[in-house]
Design a protein around this nucleic acid. Structure first.
Lengths: 418, 418
DNA sequence: CGTCTTTAGTATCTCGGTAAAACATAATTG
DNA sequence: CAATTATGTTTTACCGAGATACTAAAGACG
C-alpha cells in the first residue's frame, strides 16, 4: 500500500507536550464519536493502555468536556445504554452537556438561532420565516441579535458557551469576518461582527461561515464529532440560490480561500440564461426554487407539497419544470462527481424536499455522464425531508464551534451563559 | 482564528516512538525542502533544539536518506552554496543521492522510463515517441519492461532503488494495481504488474497511478519534497485526451477512489458532440489535440509550432480552432475554479505548448465566469513549454515513490540497482 | 449465601525522547 | 595570536506513555 502525503504536514517539532495534547484530543474525539464508552473502551479504541486513557479521560472530565454518566442517566443520541455484563460495571462517558455554542443563520427565507451542546442536544432555538431578499443588513442583523440574546437567556443555567458562528448564503472571507457577496440577500461587503456587536453577543466571539459548508456538517456529523452515515458526499443546499459543499473523510473541502464548492454556479449550458453572478447558464438558473416554481406555474412561496401534487396529477408544466431541474442537476453534478470522485449526492433545503420528484430523472443522467459510474454507482440522498425550514446552517455553525473544542480540548472550556 | 478539522485524524494513540518517527520525518522533509541546510538550520526551521535535530540528522545520514556534502561538493538544484560566514563552518546537508526510484509512463504518443534520486537528479532515462492509440497492451508493456531494464543498467553503481511507479492516462484503481479504462490507448481492465513481472523489474515493487495526478507533482515539487512555486493549482494534461488534477497545499486531491480531477470530461455544452466516455460535450471534444488540429486543418501529428505560425499569420481556420478550444477551456475551468477555489491553472502537455495562443482568449472567460475573480484573479501558467515529449508523468511517478521515503524515513532504504 | 470469575479502574515503576545547559570545535576578525 | 562567533556534541533533567501489579465491583455458580 503506497504511502500518500495528504495535506499540510506539521512544520514544528513535536515534544512531549505535543504528544499529550494529541492524545488528549484523540480521547475527546473518541468519546464524541460514540456513546456510553467506558475508560476501558476508550483505551481499546485508541490502543492506549487503560492507565493512560484513564488519566486523559480524568483530565477531560475536569474540564467539563466529558461527563461521567450516573447510574440511571441517559446519554446522547438514539443508542441505548449497553446491557450490564459480567465484571465490574463501567462508568459510561458522554460528551460534556454543559459546553455549548450558539449557531446563527441568515437565509433569504428565514432567520435562525440555536444553542447546541457537545452532545448535540438543542438547548434553545428560534426560527422565524420571512422574505429577506434585498433586505437591509443592519436591520436584519439587529433582529438576529435580539433573537440570539433571547435564545441565550433561555439556555439552562450552568451552560458554558464557547462561541457563536453565523451561517451566510454567500461568498465569505472567514479569516476577515467579511461577507463579500450574497446575491440572494443582495448584501455585499458586510462585517456582521460589527453589526451584532451592540447586543449581548458582544462578548461571545463571532465567526462567520458559508451556509452550505456548515449545513453539510449536519450530514457529516450526527452530533459534534459523531460521524454520520456517509463520510464522503456532495451537498447541495437548495433555496432561491443553490449553495454547495464537498465533504471528504468527514471534513468539508474548503479550498485556498474557503470558497470551494460553489456548485450553484457550475455551467450547465453556456448558451443558457444569464445569472446574477455575471455568468451564463449556471445551475442556479435551472434548479433554484423560484425558477422551478415559476416554470411549474406556481408562486414563489408555494409549498413543495403543492408541486408534488401537481406532478402526481400529471400536470404538464409541473412535470416539465421538475424534468428540467433534474436534467440540469444531472449535468452539473456529473461534472462535480467526475472532479471530486465523491459519488454520493445529498440534496438539502428545497432540493431535499423535492428529492423524490427529482430522483427518477436525475439518477440516469448521472449514471450515463459519470466516468466511474460503471464501478461505483452515484446515489442521491435527501436531507431533511420536512417542509418547515430546519435551518441546518445554524446547527452546522454550532457544530463547527464545538468541533474546535474537541480538536483542542486543552484550550479550555468557556464561560457561563447569560 | 478558528481551528478547522482537516482530513482524517489518527485513530491510534501516539507513543514516544511515534514522536520520534514524526520528528524524523519532519527533519527529512525539512532537508528535502531546501538546499545546503546545516544541522543548526534544521533545528531552527523545526524549532527543535540543536541536540535533537542533530541526532535525527545523524540517523538519516546513516540510512542514506540525507548526505553530508564535502567541502567542494555541489548539492541539488539551482541554488548556490551559502557564502562562508563567521563562526564554525556548517556541514551542508542534502537529500541522499543514492536513493532513487524508477518512473515509467505509457502515453498515447510515447513511452518513457526515468530513474531519479532523492535530489531530483535524473540518473538515467529513455523516451521513445510512437503512436500507441489502440495498441496491444502486452506488447507495449513488454517494450517498456525492456526499456526499464536498460535504463536500470545504466544507473551508476551503488544506487539503491526503492520502487517503481507507472503513469497511465486513464482511470486507475491504485490499491488493486488495475487500469480500469484508458480510452485514448483503448485499454481496459489491465493489471500492468502482471505483464511487467517477467523482466528485471520483477523484484522492484510496481505501483501504478493516474498520469495527470503524477505529472501535477512535477509542478507541485521541483524535486522530491521540494515545494514548487505554487502550492495550489489546477493541472491540465493536454494530449489526445485531457487529464486533470487538482493540487491543494502541495498535495494532489485524490477523492474516495483516486479518480478525482477528471477535468477532461467536465461538460462544456450538453448539446455538444458525443465523447468516448459515453457523455456529450466533454471538454476533451473541444480542446483535445486531435480536435484542435483537425479544426485548424492540420494533420494529427503537426507540431505546435506550425499551429502557432498559422495563428500568427492570421489563418482563419487556425484562429478559430484555438478560439474554440480556449472558450471551452474557459467554460470548464471556470466551473473547476468555482468548485475547488484554486485559482491558478497550469497547462501541461500539448496545452502547455500552445498556452501562449490560448491565454488571450481564455483569461477573459475565466475572469467573467469565476465567482471570486473580483477578489483573486485566476491566472494561466504553462508547464514545459518545449515541444519534445518530456514525460512529466514518469518524473512524477518517481517523485511519488521517493515521497514515501521522505514521509516515512524509518522504513529504510532499499536495495542496490542491477 | 459465599466463593470464584471477570472486567473496570488505579498506583507505581521503568523506558524513551526531547529540552536545557554546558562544552568542544573550527572558522573569521582584528 | 587572541577574541569572537556560530556549529555540533555531551550530559543531565524532566515528562509522558507503557508495563505490571493491585484494588473494586459486579455477575456466575455451587
Amino acid at each position: 500500500m503506497p504511502l500518500e502525503l495528504s495535506g499540510p504536514q506539521p512544520t514544528s517539532g513535536a515534544r512531549q507536550a505535543t504528544l499529550r495534547e494529541s492524545n488528549l484530543a484523540l480521547v475527546a474525539r473518541t468519546v464524541a464519536a460514540s456513546a456510553y464508552l467506558s475508560r476501558a473502551d476508550v483505551a481499546g479504541a485508541t490502543s492506549m493502555t487503560r492507565a493512560t486513557a484513564s488519566r486523559l479521560v480524568d483530565e477531560l472530565v475536569d474540564g467539563g468536556i466529558v461527563d461521567e454518566l450516573g447510574p440511571g442517566e441517559r446519554g446522547p443520541g438514539e443508542l441505548d445504554r449497553p446491557a450490564p455484563r459480567r465484571g465490574r460495571p463501567a462508568t459510561p462517558l458522554a460528551p460534556g452537556s454543559r459546553i455549548a455554542a450558539l449557531g446563527l443563520q441568515v437565509d433569504a427565507g428565514f432567520l435562525a438561532a440555536r444553542v447546541i451542546n457537545l452532545r448535540g442536544q438543542v438547548l434553545a432555538e428560534w426560527v422565524e420565516s420571512g422574505d429577506l431578499v434585498a433586505s437591509p443588513p443592519g436591520e436584519v442583523l439587529r433582529r438576529l441579535d435580539a433573537a440570539g440574546r433571547d435564545v441565550l437567556s433561555r439556555v439552562p443555567g450552568g451552560a458554558a458557551l464557547i462561541g457563536a458562528r453565523l451561517a451566510l448564503p454567500g461568498l465569505v472571507a472567514v479569516e476577515d469576518g467579511l461577507l463579500l457577496r450574497a446575491p440572494t440577500l443582495g448584501w455585499s461587503d458586510i462585517r456582521p461582527a460589527d453589526l451584532l456587536a451592540s447586543g449581548t453577543l458582544a462578548d461571545l466571539p463571532l465567526t462567520i461561515g458559508n451556509e452550505a459548508d456548515l449545513a453539510a456538517r449536519t450530514v457529516a456529523e450526527n452530533a459534534p464529532g459523531r460521524p454520520g452515515p456517509v463520510p464522503d458526499f456532495v451537498y447541495l443546499s437548495g433555496g432561491i440560490g443553490i449553495g454547495g459543499a464537498v465533504v471528504r473523510d468527514g471534513a468539508v473541502i474548503t479550498g485556498s480561500h474557503g470558497w470551494a464548492g460553489e456548485i450553484g454556479h457550475v455551467c450547465v449550458d453556456p448558451n443558457g440564461p444569464s445569472c446574477l453572478c455575471g455568468s451564463t447558464g449556471c445551475l442556479e438558473r435551472y434548479a433554484g426554487r423560484h425558477m422551478i416554481l415559476a416554470a411549474a406555474g406556481l408562486g414563489p412561496t408555494a409549498p413543495s407539497e403543492l408541486l408534488a401534487e401537481r406532478v402526481a396529477a400529471g400536470d404538464r408544466e409541473a412535470c416539465q419544470a421538475v424534468g428540467v431541474a433534474a436534467w440540469a442537476l444531472g449535468i452539473a453534478l456529473a461534472s462535480v462527481v467526475n472532479m471530486f470522485d465523491v459519488p454520493t449526492v445529498v440534496l438539502g433545503g428545497y432540493l431535499g424536499q423535492i428529492a423524490g420528484l427529482l430522483r427518477a430523472d436525475l439518477e440516469p443522467v448521472l449514471r450515463s455522464r459519470v466516468l466511474s459510474a460503471r464501478w461505483v454507482t452515484p446515489t442521491i440522498v435527501a436531507a431533511e425531508p420536512g417542509s418547515a425550514p430546519s435551518a441546518p446552517g445554524a446547527t452546522g455553525a454550532a457544530f463547527a464551534e464545538l468541533a474546535a473544542v474537541i480538536a483542542d480540548p486543552a484550550r479550555g472550556t468557556g464561560r457561563p451563559a447569560g
